[in-house]
Design a binder for these strands. Structure first.
Lengths: 119, 119
DNA sequence: GAGGGATATTGATGAACGTCGATGTTCAGT
DNA sequence: ACTGAACATCGACGTTCATCAATATCCCTC
């Protein structure tokens, strides 16, 4: 009891919250695989750009139509990248009319950031 | 003038220091590719485990012989992963006798960590 | 309900990656 | 010099992944 995580937002399924900071103790195989999956979602130029565009947009959200052009990739490819980022927990999707809006989940990035710090 | 970076260690070739934080402004193509390369070095279970073992070892360093067994991969594969981490700036290599010691570069992880934070 | 626009899914293709066995290299000790 | 140990490099193989064109789905409007 007295778990530290009780304070955090329960609704956010922060998949990156898998383990102690890297430098704290050796990662187990399962934890390493989970963290790697999360990091792999970030380790792509197109997805990093998509994330940063969304993050610096008003309300920290943007629709696909605003993202396709500046990225310079086809619409299906952009859609695919957004799906990867969403499944990794970095974005959430909400459809309004014909448009799909993707919103940043700041806690997800903070989680990953916290795991990498040397403590 | 008054650059923030002047304070940081000059000797460390922190390759991750490419750009402003993700949420600050949209990443350019070149910056995104560089960051992605750095993150790709982290986005692998074996490399994450290697990093964490080194990070939690005495003096934040370890030789290959101490790493091969706990990882459960062949020696060439471990050697390859260590090379990737070194080229990404997360480790440095120093040979003493027959042994090769890999030491953690904490600043590199801190750099990446700082870029992901939502600011 | 028919047409059109925005987004998601599918299938295919080429490149990048993780892994290993085999071999090369360097160094300590005999 | 020779042998053995520690580590790196090479070449090959199977898998994963980014990307696109084509197609499907959903929703608005007329």
């Amino acid at each position: 009891m007295g778990q530290l995580l009780e304070i955090t937002d329960v609704t956010a399924k922060t998949r990156a919250a898998c383990c102690a900071p890297l430098a704290k103790e050796p990662l187990g195989q399962a934890d390493a695989e989970q963290l790697a999956t999360t990091l792999k979602a970030l380790a792509d130029p197109a997805r990093l750009r998509l994330l940063s565009i969304v993050a610096s947009s008003e309300g920290r959200e943007a629709c696909v139509c605003d993202l396709t052009d500046p990225i310079g990739l086809s619409q299906p490819t952009v859609s695919h990248h957004l799906k990867v980022l969403t499944e990794a927990g970095f974005l959430t999707r909400s459809k309004r009319g014909t448009w799909a809006y993707y919103r940043l989940v700041p806690e997800a990035l903070e989680q990953v950031s916290a795991l990498l710090v040397t403590a």
